[in-house]
Amino acid sequence: MRAEDMLPDHLDHTRIDGVLVRKGSVGAFLANARVWSDGEADAEARAQAERHIVEALPALRALGLFEVLEIRDPGLRAFVAGMSEVTVA
């Protein structure tokens, strides 16, 4: 499967199991994970990254991201695991 098979160029989102998944969800998660894990990031940047991570979790779970990949950073892995009940779409 190629990216355009999941989401053609003319679309910027889809629904998987009723959850809105936007193009760029995985890339945004990775960018936010880097900020969240950066010990030198300021508190506001880290808090914003955390909010964005929480908002993205339902889409990332609908994609099955965490069924295939494990988060290496132990703190971020624990945070994401602790947010298992988050259902923000």
Rank of each mutant, 00 (worst) to 15 (best):
M1P: 10
R2G: 08
R2H: 03
R2P: 00
A3E: 07
A3R: 14
E4T: 13
E4P: 04
D5E: 09
D5L: 10
M6P: 06
M6T: 12
L7N: 07
D9F: 15
D9E: 15
H10D: 12
H10E: 13
L11F: 14
D12A: 14
D12T: 15
D12K: 14
H13R: 15
R15L: 14
R15F: 08
R15W: 12
D17C: 11
D17L: 15
G18N: 05
V19H: 07
L20D: 02
L20I: 11
L20K: 09
V21G: 04
V21M: 04
V21Y: 06
V21E: 05
R22M: 14
K23I: 10
K23S: 15
K23V: 13
K23W: 08
G24S: 07
G24C: 10
S25A: 15
S25H: 09
V26F: 05
V26N: 12
G27C: 06
A28M: 10
A28P: 04
A28R: 15
F29D: 01
F29S: 05
L30K: 10
L30G: 04
A31K: 15
A31V: 13
A31T: 13
N32E: 10
A33P: 02
A33E: 04
A33W: 04
R34H: 14
R34N: 10
R34S: 13
R34L: 10
V35A: 08
W36H: 05
W36L: 03
W36E: 00
S37C: 11
S37I: 01
S37F: 00
S37Y: 02
D38S: 03
D38P: 01
E40K: 08
A41C: 01
A41N: 02
A41L: 02
D42C: 04
D42T: 09
D42G: 06
D42E: 14
A43N: 06
A43S: 13
A43I: 11
A43P: 06
E44A: 15
E44V: 15
E44D: 13
A45Y: 11
A45T: 03
A45I: 00
R46H: 07
A47Q: 06
A47F: 05
A49S: 01
E50M: 09
E50H: 02
R51Y: 11
R51F: 06
H52N: 14
I53K: 07
I53E: 08
I53F: 03
E55I: 09
E55A: 14
E55N: 12
E55G: 02
E55V: 11
A56K: 07
A56M: 06
P58I: 06
A59S: 11
L60D: 02
G64H: 06
F66Q: 10
E67I: 02
V68Q: 06
V68S: 09
V68H: 05
V68R: 12
L69G: 03
L69W: 08
L69I: 11
E70A: 12
R72S: 11
R72I: 01
R72C: 00
D73R: 05
P74F: 01
G75Q: 01
G75M: 00
L76G: 01
R77C: 02
A78D: 07
V80I: 01
A81L: 03
G82L: 00
M83C: 14
V86E: 11
T87H: 08
V88A: 12
V88Q: 08
